[in-house]
Simulated scan of single mutants.
Amino acid sequence: MVNDFSSCYSVSRQVRAQQKNQRPMCIWLTGLSGSGKSTLSTQLEQVLHARGLHTMVLDGDIVRQGLCRDLGMSDADRSENIRRVAEVARLMVEAGLIVIVALISPFRKDRQAARELFAEGEFLEVFVDAPLETCSARDPKGLYAKVRSGQIKNFTGVDSPYEAPEHPDVHIRSAENDVVACVQSILGRMGLRDVQ
């Protein structure tokens, strides 16, 4: 359920959004490690910034170094990681920003709980879909190699489950489309015209 913070602030979210001349929202990218979430979030932010829009990216690797550095990789810790990031994203939307979250976020219930923090139309779930074989071949952080050698256990998509979105707002097949086409898909769902 969405909490109404209007009585907590002397400057309303509507005023903040008007000042920035944009519609605040949370764009939540979910998918396996190596599916392209971070690449896509970076490119999307650059495109939005070029339009003069105010953005912030919350990337899983970065939040794990600070906000969530006390958390492990158990199911409970993963859920808490999502809860914390969702709460921060909500505050940033309250501040009038377009927030791009890039997290594996493997469990549907956690993504749904995140969605419920936002008003209707403020949350877009983007499924960055790539086959496990593609993600493993990309292996930008060398994680799949560590899984294969036994150095990492409980790895999402291998020996820990990933619950793919059943009805994402945007479904991106990153193995079949380049990053420009993927960004355009998100922009279209945001109601923004193509940015060249």
Results as ranks from 00 to 15, higher is better:
Met1Asn: 05
Asn3Gly: 09
Phe5Asn: 13
Ser6Cys: 03
Ser7Val: 11
Ser7Arg: 10
Tyr9Gln: 15
Ser12Lys: 04
Ser12Ala: 11
Arg13Phe: 01
Arg13Ser: 15
Arg13Lys: 13
Gln14Cys: 04
Val15Gln: 15
Val15Arg: 07
Gln19Pro: 00
Lys20Val: 08
Asn21Ser: 13
Asn21Thr: 08
Gln22Glu: 07
Arg23Phe: 08
Cys26Val: 14
Cys26Gln: 09
Trp28Met: 08
Trp28Phe: 09
Leu29Glu: 04
Leu29Gly: 06
Thr30Ser: 10
Leu32Ile: 03
Ser35Lys: 02
Gly36Asn: 08
Gly36Lys: 04
Gly36Val: 04
Gly36Phe: 05
Lys37Pro: 02
Ser38Gly: 09
Ser41Met: 04
Thr42Arg: 08
Gln43Ser: 06
Gln43Leu: 04
Glu45Val: 02
Val47Thr: 14
Val47Gln: 10
His49Ser: 13
Ala50Gly: 15
Leu53Cys: 01
His54Tyr: 13
Thr55Met: 12
Met56Gln: 12
Asp61Phe: 02
Asp61Asn: 05
Asp61Arg: 02
Arg64Leu: 09
Gly66Ile: 09
Leu67Tyr: 04
Leu67Glu: 11
Leu67Met: 15
Asp70Lys: 04
Leu71Gln: 09
Gly72Ala: 13
Met73Glu: 12
Met73Trp: 09
Ser74Asp: 14
Ser74Cys: 10
Asp75Val: 06
Ser79Met: 05
Glu80Asn: 07
Asn81Arg: 02
Ile82Phe: 01
Ala86His: 11
Val88His: 03
Ala89Cys: 09
Arg90Val: 01
Arg90His: 07
Arg90Trp: 06
Leu91Met: 12
Leu91Asp: 00
Met92Ser: 02
Val93His: 06
Glu94Met: 02
Ala95Thr: 01
Ala95Leu: 04
Gly96Asn: 07
Gly96Met: 08
Leu97Phe: 09
Ile98Phe: 01
Val99Pro: 00
Ile100Tyr: 07
Ile100His: 05
Val101Glu: 02
Val101Ala: 12
Ala102Pro: 03
Leu103Phe: 01
Leu103Trp: 00
Ser105Met: 02
Ser105Asn: 05
Phe107Arg: 00
Arg108Gln: 13
Arg108Asp: 06
Lys109Asp: 11
Arg111Ser: 10
Arg111His: 08
Arg111Gln: 10
Gln112Val: 12
Ala114Pro: 00
Arg115Thr: 10
Glu116Pro: 00
Glu116Trp: 01
Phe118Ser: 09
Glu120Pro: 06
Leu124Asn: 01
Leu124Thr: 03
Glu125Thr: 04
Asp129Thr: 01
Leu132Asn: 08
Cys135Ala: 11
Asp139Leu: 05
Asp139Pro: 01
Pro140Trp: 11
Pro140Val: 11
Pro140Ala: 14
Lys141Ala: 14
Lys141Tyr: 11
Leu143Ala: 08
Lys146Arg: 15
Val147Tyr: 04
Val147Ala: 11
Gln151His: 10
Lys153Leu: 14
Thr156His: 00
Gly157Phe: 05
Asp159Trp: 07
Pro161Phe: 08
Tyr162Arg: 05
Ala164Ser: 11
Pro165Lys: 05
Glu166Asn: 04
His167Cys: 12
His167Leu: 14
Pro168Asp: 15
Asp169Ser: 07
Asp169Lys: 01
Val170Leu: 10
Ile172Met: 04
Arg173Thr: 11
Ser174Leu: 12
Ala175Gln: 13
Val180Ser: 13
Ala181His: 12
Cys182Lys: 01
Gln184Val: 05
Gly188Trp: 05
Met190Glu: 12
Leu192Cys: 10
Arg193Pro: 08
Arg193Gln: 15
Val195Gln: 15
